[in-house]
Every structure is written in C-alpha cells, then in structure tokens.
C-alpha cells in the first residue's frame, strides 16, 4: 500500500525537498503552506502521516497539531514535526501538543523516510 503523506511547511524550498525525498520513495505526497491550509486539506484527506513545520504564518505547527488532535479529534494519525529547532524545549512543546516525533532540518532523505517508517505501516 502506498503511504500518503501530508507535509505542511511555509517554505516552498522545503516543500519541494520533502516532495522530492518522499515521492522518490514511492510515497504519495500532499503539500500545504501553513497550518490553516493544512487543516483545510484534512477536510477531505486522510493521510497516513502528517509532517509539519513549526514556524509558519497564519497558524504555526503547534496550533496545527492542536487543531488535528482536538478540533478534528484525530488522535491516531502520526504527526512528525519538521523543524530546524533542535532545542529540547520545542520538542517538548510539540510532544505536549500531540506530535508523534520529530525530524531536524536539514534532513537526510534516509532519516526522513526512516522516521516515517517508524510511525506508519
């Protein structure tokens, strides 16, 4: 089964990179530009894994995760936080929001894929 991934990042560069890294792995990739966009896409999309940036306009990563877990009441879709912040504090905040894991930017393709494999079939 092809895994479908929703990646939320305000940087076009990052979105392109994620798409390149994941489509070459055979994943189906959907992209959103910020938290608001991401939540909107989830209206008619049920991805196997969500990847989200933290620093974003309109609705940041924490707000987005919150929206998924609480507003959409989705507690099972794994959410990986993709961020340049390796600071422990941020990971803790992401975890508190309900993030499943994290990937530190700049990422290596293999690490990204391995992280996804660890949270989804």
């Amino acid at each position: 089964m092809t895994l479908s991934i929703l990646a939320v990042d305000d940087s076009r560069t990052m979105r392109d990179m994620i798409r390149l890294a994941l489509t070459s792995e055979g994943f189906e990739v959907f992209l959103a530009e910020d938290g608001v966009d991401g939540l909107k896409m989830l209206d008619d999309l049920t991805p196997d894994v969500i990847i989200t940036d933290i620093n974003m306009p309109n609705l940041d990563g924490f707000g987005f995760i919150d929206g998924v877990r609480k507003d959409l009441n989705d507690r099972t879709t794994p959410i990986l936080v993709l961020t340049t912040e390796s600071a422990a504090e941020l990971k803790q905040r992401a975890r508190n929001s309900g993030a499943s894991g994290w990937i530190v930017k700049p990422f290596e393709q293999t690490k990204l894929v391995a992280a996804i494999r660890r949270v989804a079939a």
């Binding site: 076009r12 530009e33 910020d34 608001v36 966009d37 939540l39 909107k40 306009p57 309109n58 609705l59 940041d60 924490f62 707000g63 987005f64 995760i65 919150d66 929206g67 877990r69 609480k70 507690r75 905040r93 975890r95 508190n96 929001s97 309900g98």
Partner: peptide, 22 residues
C-alpha cells in the same frame, strides 16, 4: 487526560491563505 496543548493562535484561521499558482 489528553496532553495539555499550548494556547495556539487561531485568530488567523479565518484569514485563509491566498491561492496562488507559480
């Protein structure tokens, strides 16, 4: 209980993102 979530700013939720194509 469900993990306490940070008070995220949701005011922007209504603003919507502008649809653009490059």
């Amino acid at each position: 209980a469900a993990p306490a979530a940070p008070a995220a700013t949701k005011k922007a939720k209504e603003t919507g993102s502008k649809a653009t194509v490059r």
